[in-house]
Amino acid sequence: MDVFKDRLSQRALDTSRPALAHQCQGRPLSPAEIALKDALMEVFATGTHDFAQVAAELASRRVAAPVSGRSDWTEALLLEELSAINADLDAAYRDRGYGA
C-alpha cells in the first residue's frame, strides 16, 4: 500500500497536484483513528486476528475507541467502532473524495 501511495504522490508532484495521493480519503483520519490503526497493526503483526482476542489486547493497551471514547474493548465494541468509522469514511468519500 505504501509503495502505491508513494508512486501516486510522485506522479501527483509531477502534475503539480500533491494532494492527489490523499484525495480518495474524503477526510483525514482523526488522531484517535490513527492510534487505533497503529494498535491494530501491532496486534495483527503478532498473528492475532480473532476479534475477541484483538479486543482483549486493545483493552489491555487502554486504546481509546475513536467513536465512543471507551477503552473497555469487547468484540461487540470493536465491531461497532469499526462499522461506525467505515460508515463515516464512506460518507466523507461520497461527499468529498476523489471522483465524488
Results as ranks from 00 to 15, higher is better:
73 W>C: 05
100 A>P: 03
30 S>V: 05
67 V>F: 01
99 G>H: 02
2 D>N: 12
17 R>L: 15
56 A>M: 06
48 T>S: 03
68 S>D: 05
96 R>V: 02
31 P>F: 02
70 R>G: 13
40 L>W: 00
30 S>E: 05
46 T>S: 15
96 R>Y: 09
24 C>V: 11
20 L>P: 10
38 D>Y: 02
1 M>P: 14
85 I>G: 06
97 G>M: 03
2 D>A: 12
60 S>W: 06
10 Q>D: 12
77 L>V: 01
36 L>A: 04
87 A>Q: 14
5 K>R: 13
75 E>N: 06
59 A>H: 10
82 L>G: 02
44 F>N: 09
71 S>N: 07
45 A>H: 03
4 F>M: 08
14 D>G: 13
33 E>V: 08
76 A>N: 10
90 D>Q: 10
72 D>S: 11
68 S>R: 09
66 P>T: 02
98 Y>E: 14
41 M>T: 12
67 V>Y: 00
17 R>W: 07
50 D>F: 10
5 K>S: 12
22 H>Q: 12
6 D>K: 13
20 L>M: 15
99 G>N: 04
16 S>I: 11
89 L>N: 01
80 E>R: 12
63 V>M: 08
56 A>T: 01
14 D>R: 13
90 D>I: 14
22 H>G: 08
12 A>C: 07
85 I>A: 08
42 E>D: 14
99 G>S: 01
12 A>S: 09
75 E>L: 03
25 Q>Y: 10
